[in-house]
Design a protein around this nucleic acid. Structure first.
Lengths: 136, 136
DNA sequence: ATCAATCGGACCGATTTGGTCCGATTAAGC
DNA sequence: GCTTAATCGGACCAAATCGGTCCGATTGAT
């Protein structure tokens, strides 16, 4: 019942990237310096985030990264799904057959819980996270 | 972002145990037969569930298991926490220092998400799960 | 006191996760 | 047009956790 470290890091990294949104491009190395994460780890993250369409990467000298969408249109749920894949608490939510399929009275309830979690994550846009410790 | 298989199994096993509530005691072997899970796995589960105070075990010949509380007073959150430990999406929710502590603007938001998830799990008592496929 | 049936904990293999490294690609500069 | 430099992208490897299996300790009935 725990979020993977990578997903946690990704949220922090995207939060840092959103601060560079006005100033144009940033780089994986810069994000690593600001977040304190290892550079290769950040590179791995931006790969997945780019593939998911959350970041837009420009290669070559002078290249870098920028948000593919406005920060307000990116939620924690988007970031988590980009790194960990679809949010599914149990295998049967994704369609896999559980081994007690014939009389599994629990099955119908999981999608409800699943959507509750997803809704909680989708309710937090990147703009809200960028406000440094205002709600602490 | 996925529940462990053990936690999923534990919910199913507890659901099966609740059906024996009126009839008194059951056993790990019986639960295994009803759920289709391997016997040793169920034994492992009942150990943790007993330690968490959700099941009461009686040892010796003719012993067995029974719910320690009424089924209505046991929620999915209780079962998940019994098997997986406290529900904490990130390490910082539990008090551990993240390595970007000094300016982690994300940190204040995790407890909110965490409670939303926990609330969704705590809203489902065992009695609701026992109703076989009524809400499908 | 013996026996039988149960739970409880310890051991082992497998999968996933997290971290590191090197190569492919691209744009700028000469 | 070529060289150079800086970047992203994917492949490789170690570690931790998870899942499964087994055997021993404890307890009540006979």
């Amino acid at each position: 019942m725990r979020l993977s470290n990578l997903a946690d890091y990704a949220v922090v990294a995207m939060c840092a990237a959103s601060r560079h949104c006005g100033g144009g491009k940033t780089s994986a190395a810069e994000l690593a310096a600001e977040t304190g994460l290892p550079v290769p780890t950040v590179q791995k993250l931006v790969s997945k985030l780019s593939a998911a369409g959350l970041l837009r990467s420009t290669r070559g000298a002078g290249g870098g990264l920028q948000l593919a969408r406005p920060a307000a249109a990116i939620t924690v749920a988007d970031i988590v799904e980009a790194v960990e894949g679809p949010i599914a608490l149990t295998a049967c939510v994704e369609g896999a057959d559980c081994l007690v399929e014939h009389d599994c009275s629990v099955k119908p309830h999981w999608p409800v819980v699943n959507e509750a979690l997803r809704g909680a994550l989708a309710a937090i846009p990147l703009t809200q996270l960028a406000r440094t410790r205002e709600i602490a």
